[in-house]
């Protein structure tokens, strides 16, 4: 109990302390990490549903997008200021989570996956349909001038980093508190054996709905934060791909571990970054020189990486990195 709290504080403090160092020496990674923290927040939310409750959603992008559009459209069209727009964005995601949960949680297993996929797809298509407001796949940007809270300029790299860190820390600590609470024990029990949990007197539907709404809220907060901090909202974030990403990050880092989502997001981000930066173009050149096949697509092969990672993880490491660490060395890891 104490150990795990200390561990999380140390991780957050570490992220806090490296900020100035990164800004001075590695401005590129500084910017990346701010983005990663926002996306990791999304993954933390996903993990509550998938990792701890055992519900595999294929449509979480709809919650991310609900937060993003709820916030960004109010700023763009309603000319709201950042703070209230952010909260309305989160509220949109929570509401959507409640509605989708009420319906989708009547199904189980594969049914749940497809229902969430379909709901997300209809939200994505809706974003495209109202092209007039959302500008579809192309998206729209939020001008720098409005991106500030109470005089604090959110476009400044340091402020942006800390804003992302604060959001991430809140969600991370919330997830830690949740999984160590009594409600968390019920969620884990539902993941392990839903029928048994019911026969111990818990209403699985209510707990699953609770997990889904919390999860959706965090996804929405991440989406709204993305719009505010990086000044952009687009339908791509509502597409199937952005539903698959958090699944991949959580699978890589370790489903059902509080720190897994962060680890998975960082690793996958840099794997893709590294691959499209040096490895894959090198490979493309190799293929072209040796086999005479022009392979321009290979140069930015993030699809291949994502695909391979999914297949290999599900085949050989379904517990992910931290899940395996917990199994072998650190049994107390939350």
């Amino acid at each position: 109990m104490i150990r795990s709290i200390v561990l999380h504080i140390v991780v957050i403090a570490g992220l806090f302390l490296i900020e100035s160092f990164l800004l001075e020496h590695y401005a590129y990674h500084h910017g990346n990490l701010a983005r990663i923290l926002v996306l990791a927040t999304y993954a933390v939310g996903y993990n509550i549903l998938f990792g701890y409750t055992g519900l595999l959603s294929l449509g979480h992008a709809m919650f991310f997008a609900a937060g993003m559009y709820g916030c960004a459209l109010l700023i763009r069209i309603g000319e709201w200021s950042i703070a209230p727009a952010f909260f309305v964005g989160v509220l949109c995601a929570l509401t959507l989570g409640l509605i989708v949960g009420f319906l989708a949680l009547r199904t189980i297993g594969v049914g749940f996956m497809i229902v969430t996929l379909m709901f997300a797809q209809s939200i994505y298509l809706t974003a495209l349909y109202y092209n007039e407001y959302t500008r579809g796949d192309e998206g729209f940007s939020i001008p720098q001038t409005v991106r500030s809270i109470g005089g604090i300029d959110l476009t400044d790299p340091t402020t942006r980093y800390f804003a992302a860190l604060i959001l991430f820390s809140i969600c991370l600590l919330m997830s830690l508190a949740l999984v160590q609470s009594k409600a968390g024990r019920v969620l884990i029990a539902i993941r392990e054996n839903e029928d048994r949990t019911r026969m111990l007197g818990f209403n699985p539907f209510r707990y699953k709905l609770f997990a889904l709404v919390i999860s959706a809220g965090m996804a929405g907060a991440a989406g709204a934060a993305y719009a505010v901090l990086f000044g952009y909202a687009g339908a791509t974030f509502a597409s199937v791909q952005y539903s698959i990403f958090p699944l991949l990050w959580v699978l890589l880092g370790g489903p059902g571990t509080t720190l897994g989502p962060l680890l998975g997001t960082i690793l996958m981000f840099y794997l893709v970054d590294l691959a499209s930066g040096s490895i894959m173009p090198g490979l493309a050149a190799l293929v072209e020189n040796n086999f005479g096949i022009e392979a321009p697509g290979l140069a930015s092969a993030y699809l291949l990486l994502v695909g391979l990672a999914l297949v290999l993880l599900v085949l050989f490491a379904p517990k992910g990195l931290l899940g395996s660490v917990r199994e072998r060395w650190v049994p107390w890891l939350p």
């Binding site: 029990a189 392990e192 054996n193 048994r196």
Partner: peptide, 10 residues
Amino acid sequence: FQITSIFGNL
């Protein structure tokens, strides 16, 4: 339960 139905991983 007739078939032992415990939470094996816990």
